[in-house]
Write a protein that binds this DNA or RNA. Structure first.
Lengths: 140, 140
DNA sequence: ATTATTGCAAACCCTTTGCAACTTA
DNA sequence: TAAGTTGCAAAGGGTTTGCAATAAT
């Protein structure tokens, strides 16, 4: 139910005192519809097809969404940055094609192992970033 | 034996037709001596204490070292980029303190699991990026 | 001698910021 | 009406590039 993800996102923002403007709604709609990691440029491009929206507005909304914990930021090997709308308890990772940037979701996760290792080193509040890279079947 | 890592690095570059210049040697010495992930800025700072060296030279050398596969690039959550000199078969990861950026090495790695998942999705030549974040004991 | 490498400065790109105008609640 | 939000344009910061001078092989 992608509709639910969108509604949840909107109410999370509202809960933090944010207002529902046209650009903001359009940004979230785009992210909910695509349900894959998108660059700021991508988001801006799609949003403009339905509402005028400044690039800076997209950046500012990504910040708000990160604070609200409704989007996840992924850093690619090449330095590019992507954002993905995620629901609660929806932690996951991706495998990204080095050639075409096709992105697949991966549910493999190793939170427990990592917490164990980390706490043995004295670290708390542990989180992690994991991205896989490869060549997808279409590009090989 | 950190000395060996340095020598190996130098000969890897030589093998690719690169020359051994003063700035290049200094850059590798610094990376070998620190044996932790360093930013371009860090490297530049240390190198300048022994040899004049332009920032652009550090960037260009990082590119050469990545191609030669003697340094590993790590992307931090906040977008910062670090480079670390690594030997062969020395794949590893880090846990980074969100407050002070203290970095510890972690040997936990899950290459096999990842290859399995990735190939079931049709991906080949799989690599991965993994960084843990937390609050270290000194900062907590 | 040949070719890689360097320094310098300018160009670039992505991202952030200040501010006045405008919306939302 | 008060406070968040936007657009615009300018500023920022890190990284890359062109080119002539320099140094390594």
């Amino acid at each position: 139910m992608p509709k639910k993800k969108l509604e949840d996102a909107l109410s999370s923002l509202k809960a933090l005192g944010h207002r529902l403007t046209a650009p903001r709604k359009a940004i979230l709609e785009v992210m909910a519809a695509e349900s894959r990691p998108l660059s700021v440029e991508d988001i801006h491009h799609y949003v403009e097809q339905q509402t005028p929206c400044d690039l800076a507005t997209v950046y500012r909304n990504m910040d708000a969404c990160l604070e609200a914990d409704i989007v996840q930021k992924c850093m690619l090997e090449n330095g590019k940055v992507l954002f993905e709308l995620v629901g609660e308890h929806d932690h996951h990772h991706h495998i990204i094609c080095r050639k075409c940037e096709r992105t697949d979701r991966i549910d493999l996760c190793l939170t427990e192992e990592m917490k164990t290792v980390a706490s043995s080193l004295g670290f708390t509040e542990v989180s992690h970033v994991l991205e896989l890279y490869g060549i997808c079947s279409a590009c090989k």
